[in-house]
Write a protein that binds this DNA or RNA. Structure first.
Lengths: 177, 177
DNA sequence: CCCTTTTCACCTAGGTGGTAAGAT
DNA sequence: ATCTTACCACCTAGGTGAAAAGGG
């Protein structure tokens, strides 16, 4: 592995929330127009070379068949700072003809989100080193099933309890979250 | 001038709205937190080399003293397409200590917005060619005075009539805009 | 007196799950 | 029967000028 990526470490943000969902069997809604993930996939990066350029992206590995990618763009990390990368604008869709750059997933199938840090190699023959210029990370607690409607009512209730945009469906508990 | 920029042409969007404001003497609000411009500075680009990289930015030339810049980032133009660049997220502030990347302007002073297309020269000694790698554009009808409160009531009325976010202050006319 | 700051009601824009109807 | 779609009320988030208060 290239020196620019071999020391890179990644920590999942909101890990306890992910685990809480994972215990119930996380589900993510997919729609024609595209739907955000909740919890948001968010990681804290360290060990980046402040002078190097990186491309950060995600893909979704089916615990069945195909694979899809999504990237939030370039990053040149700031010195003395743990870069936090949020995929909050990433959207999931079940529309095979989607042209909005959303992730196309198969409803009722399970997926493992994966995160990749790719060093942008400035050398002319960088293709030759492509295999050593990236590092990938998987967090098992972020696995989920793509659905068009929630299958498990307890997942629905946890989403309503923890997602600010679903506050309209809460019954009570003004301070619990 | 470099071939990558010498054929670049730019057309101001919403020209007639800018002219309507200009006839009254355009004013732009500046606040501590930063305020958007309205009308938005928006241009249509043509003559770009589809294989080249560009940086697009704006600055504000005082019809008195200092100068400030703001850039929306890189652009690699799509073939067969007139790229439209919108500076709708640009904000103006009068806070000299601003660290949000907003444009710091002097209230009660007049400014001329200016647009620059900069070719990202891949050559090692690109600094030597910096003077020939950009092209700049000024539209006199986009001049304005920075203010903390509107000075001309007719400007206020035109803003209310044409800015969707000010719809709450309209008296009538559901179809006029 | 002139200019700036703060707060506010009223918008735009868009992210939620519920619900009922539609599709297979 | 099972999964999908379209629409909805209800939120978050944030862009408006008005008005009143603050500052020199």
């Amino acid at each position: 592995k290239n020196q620019r990526v071999c020391h890179v470490a990644v920590q999942l943000e909101m890990g306890s929330l992910w685990e809480e969902f994972n215990r119930l069997g996380t589900e993510m809604i997919v729609t024609k127009a595209g739907r955000r993930m909740f919890p948001t996939f968010q990681v804290k990066l360290s060990g980046l070379d402040p002078l190097a350029d990186y491309v950060l992206l995600m893909d979704f590995v089916p615990l069945d068949d195909k694979r899809y990618r999504w990237g939030p763009g370039h990053l040149r990390p700031k010195m003395d700072e743990w870069a936090i990368v949020s995929f909050d604008k990433l959207k999931l869709t079940n529309n095979l003809l989607d042209d909005n750059g959303h992730i196309i997933l198969n409803s009722m199938h399970r997926y493992q989100p994966r995160f990749h840090v790719v060093f942008v190699d400035p050398r002319r023959d960088s293709e030759r080193f492509a295999h050593e210029n990236f590092k990938s990370f998987s967090f098992p607690e972020t696995q989920f099933m793509a659905v068009t409607a929630y299958q498990n009512h307890r997942i629905t209730q946890l989403k309503i309890a923890s997602n600010p945009f679903a506050k309209g469906f809460r019954d009570c508990e003004p301070e619990a979250w």
